[in-house]
Write a protein that binds this DNA or RNA. Structure first.
Length: 814
DNA sequence: GCAAGGTC
């Protein structure tokens, strides 16, 4: 450490809270020339104290300010902040950042400004892991403002003169390992909490009628590594009570009255569940009723005062004696602290002032307890007496009581759930989230929701609701803080495990749904959970620009690529109904922008695609993929027969249908103009022609023909697949219709150009391009396309060949 | 909108 007098240096001192800055400044400035000056910083709570002090012969001008706990927060990058922005599984790998939140910027600016004028910085944060982490947050900010700061850490455990002076004369370096341990905790808590909270909220809210919430749309079904084990304690006790079967037992009791008082003797054996045995032993006693004293043991009994200065003990006793909630107690404690009556209540400061009389009979001042002893008559070895009463009594086993707040705090304390300062928050969270209720006896029982959630995870076989996970994390953090394990190693291992666990839990979500179904009615709202199931990301949504488009398979087996921002964003690309398998690959499209657009490996059902199309296809939904577009046109999409019954559009088929069309417009290129953003049946270049026109000229000089099935325009297209390159076909441009016919299957083998005016004037009865040569018989009088035999073509099924329906509704499809 | 940890 530098020293040796001479030039006065400026030292920036930072404490964890304003009260400590004030107290330490008061101690160090005592008897110093110049006394102490106070000035305001940018933050109204965090004053700056100035005084002179000498550290190891080095004259120092001390500036002493503070933060208010953590200066920084950890959050996901903006891209992952919105709930629908990504698959919750991605939250295990999504980048996170530590930053100074808005309400701490004033403190940050004060630190920056003061750091610039100082040569040294002394970190006076609390001496625990969190304090060490805050020290590095402060350091981060101050070093940004002044790279040349010399850094010191003051270690102290009590705000008393001797300790503070000693601390500042024996400064050390901050402990990176302690801080690392907190970084690990923060990151794990965030990733686990956010992923599970999003998952279970989106899965269950809306899927059930949650009658306790006035508006369950805003309901959050949170999961946290502390709150869930706390709920677990409540549920476990509740189940224990439920499972209890009362059982009758028998016990022999004896009392003896003498001049000195009454003595009650308990049966050494306790009790018997067998009535016959009990009666037999009792009858033996009655037959020989003289009692003999066989052992006399005197024992001093001590009564200990409650553990002093313990936050949890305070909360337990306030609950027991005043029926105050732990949260309420902490508020009162805070007030008492602010007014100078008690020491800081949120972290243990179990150190008494030198003036305290610890040989203090505590029962004289603590009136809530008494000696409570009773006088027992004196007995001597071998003494005989006749019992005053000798009875055979029955009793019934009782279940344990519901957990009281004191019990709950005890469980949490024992299992290491939360800290002194946060335990009451976790308990309150259970009530706020409708997971548990507290009765008039301040005892906790789970709500239906709380029980269902724990039951769901329990049925999966996971102990996510037990304290072991937190205990394991605590163990790992300890290993990081002592250097036994590295931060990156623990993070990687733990997150990998939790990611696998999350993934498994999602696979087994049925267990959660089943458990919920025991307690709640199913809801048929459109935002029900199953529709939120997510798949792999294909591209960023070009419509809302906020969320990802992911590949999904609907319950009916059809595939689509939908925006995770649903229902706010309804962007969706429906894929051909003939897709049997689809998976997003790591190949990106080099044509489509904005990228990346990940290609999808498709497998089509062979019978449902024209013979010249390959069963396997590596496709792109960005608009560049002609084959995919043709198959959509030929086979139709999965939306056609599912939008009214299931999938995203449940309960709102119109919206779904419109969304489907809107999004086909957005992604698949138009058959007319080759632009993305609309389909050929909505092509702006064709707008003036209108759907009622029965024949339309297309850009290449060909005309379109009204579809036999729906009347929408069919246009002549040219196949570019290996087997049929150059072969022409007509296909209906309505996204609602699958009409398709090879041109050479029409009569005459070649279509004639339609007569636009004739078609328009005669409607469907006009001369169709596909009509056979002069065979305008009865069959074909009102259709555009007829076969070589003069039969009207009504479309054909690729599976069974039946012209009466299309492949996607074929009964043989299963 | 999500965790848990500081503190005002």
């Amino acid at each position: 450490m530098a020293g040796g007098g001479g030039r006065v240096i400026r030292v920036l001192n930072v404490a964890e809270k304003p009260s400590v800055a004030k107290a330490v400044s008061g101690i160090l400035s005592k008897n110093q020339p110049g006394g102490i000056r106070v000035r305001d910083g940018r933050s109204r709570y965090n004053k700056i104290f100035e005084f002179n002090y000498t550290i190891r012969n080095q004259p120092c001008q001390m500036l002493f300010t503070s933060v208010t706990g953590h200066l920084m927060e950890i959050e996901f990058h903006e891209r992952y902040r919105k709930w629908h922005s990504c698959d919750p599984l991605d939250l295990y790998n999504a980048p996170v950042r530590k930053f100074v939140p808005e309400d701490k910027l004033d403190i940050k600016r004060t630190l920056e400004a003061e750091a610039r004028s100082c040569q040294w910085i002394i970190l006076w944060l609390d001496c625990d892991r969190e304090g060490e982490n805050i020290a590095f947050e402060v350091l981060d900010v101050c070093r940004q403002a002044n790279h040349n700061l010399t850094v010191w850490r003051a270690r102290f455990s009590a705000l008393i003169d001797r300790e503070i002076h000693q601390s500042v004369q024996t400064l050390v370096q901050p402990n990176q390992l302690f801080s690392d341990a907190v970084d690990v905790r923060q990151e794990i808590d965030l990733r686990i909490g956010a992923s599970f909270t999003r998952f279970q909220t989106m899965l269950l809210r809306g899927a059930f009628v949650l009658d306790f919430a006035t508006d369950d749309r805003n309901l959050v079904l949170s999961y946290g590594p502390c709150q869930f084990p706390t709920l677990g304690f409540v549920v476990e006790r509740y189940w224990e009570i439920q499972a209890h079967e009362p059982e009758e037992f028998w016990t022999i009791n004896c009392t003896h009255n003498s001049d000195e008082g009454t003595a009650t003797f308990n049966w050494m054996r306790g009790h018997l569940f067998d009535y016959t045995c009990g009666v037999m032993i009792y009858e033996m006693c009655i037959q020989e009723p003289i009692a003999t004293v066989t052992k006399v043991k005197q024992q001093e009994k001590l009564k200990y005062p409650p553990h002093p200065l313990s936050t949890i003990e305070l909360e337990k006793r306030a609950s027991r004696y005043f029926r105050m909630s732990s949260e309420q107690t902490m508020k009162v404690a805070e007030d008492l602290y602010q007014n100078g009556f008690i020491s800081y209540p949120r972290t243990e400061t179990d150190c008494f002032s030198d003036k305290t009389d610890l040989r203090k009979n505590y029962l004289d001042v603590y009136r809530f307890e008494s000696w409570g002893g009773s006088v027992i008559p004196t007995y001597s070895f071998g003494q005989q007496f006749t019992p005053t009463t000798l009875t055979l009594d029955s009793g019934v086993t009782r279940p344990p009581p519901l957990l009281s707040e004191a019990d709950l705090l005890g469980c949490m304390d024992k299992a290491g759930i939360g800290t002194d300062a946060t335990m009451h928050d976790h308990i309150k969270k259970l009530l706020d989230r409708f997971y548990a209720i507290k009765d008039s006896n301040t005892r906790f029982s789970p709500t239906k929701l709380g029980e269902a959630l724990v039951m769901g995870y329990d049925d999966m076989g996971y102990e996510l609701w037990k304290p072991y996970l937190r205990a394991m994390m605590e163990c790992d953090m300890k290993a990081v803080s002592t250097g036994t394990k590295r931060k990156a190693e623990v993070l990687e291992t733990c997150l990998q495990q939790m990611k696998a666990c999350f993934s498994d839990a999602r696979t087994n979500k049925g267990k959660l749904l089943e458990a919920m179904a025991i307690f709640f009615e199913r809801s048929n709202r459109s935002s029900s959970g199953e529709q939120q199931a997510v798949g792999a990301v294909v591209r960023r949504c070009g419509l809302c620009l906020e969320s990802d488009m992911v590949l999904r398979q609907k319950p009916d087996g059809n595939f689509m690529v939908g925006c995770l921002g649903y229902p706010q964003c309804r962007n969706v690309v429906w894929l051909p109904g003939s897709v049997s398998e689809a998976s997003v690959t790591e190949n990106t499209c080099i044509t489509c922008s904005p990228g990346p657009v990940f290609k999808i490996q498709f497998k089509f059902r062979q019978q449902e695609i024209p013979p010249d199309y390959s069963v396997q296809h590596l496709g792109c939904i960005g608009g560049c993929d002609d084959i995919l577009r043709q198959l959509v046109e030929i086979c139709g999409t999965g939306s056609r027969n599912s939008s009214n019954t299931s999938g995203r559009g449940r309960g709102n088929p119109t919206a779904s249908s419109s969304a489907q069309r809107d999004n086909s417009r957005a992604q698949i290129s138009c058959a007319y103009c080759r632009q993305t953003g609309h389909l050929s049946n909505d092509c702006p270049s064709q707008a003036s022609r209108g759907r009622t026109a029965r024949a339309q000229e297309v850009d290449n000089g060909e005309s379109s023909i009204p579809c036999n099935s729906c009347g929408a325009p069919c246009i002549l297209r040219t196949a570019n697949t290996a087997n049929n390159r150059g072969r022409k076909f007509f296909s209906c441009q309505s996204s609602e219709c699958n009409f398709f016919v090879w041109e050479d299957n029409l009569s005459g083998g070649r279509a004639e150009r339609a007569n636009t005016s004739a078609s328009t004037s005669s409607g469907r009865g006009g001369r169709g391009r596909g009509r056979g040569c002069g065979q305008s018989g009865a069959h074909s009088s009102n259709v555009s396309f007829v076969s070589a035999t003069g039969e009207p073509i009504t479309g054909r099924c690729f599976i069974c060949g039946d012209p009466g329906h299309f492949a996607n509704v074929c009964p043989r499809r299963g």
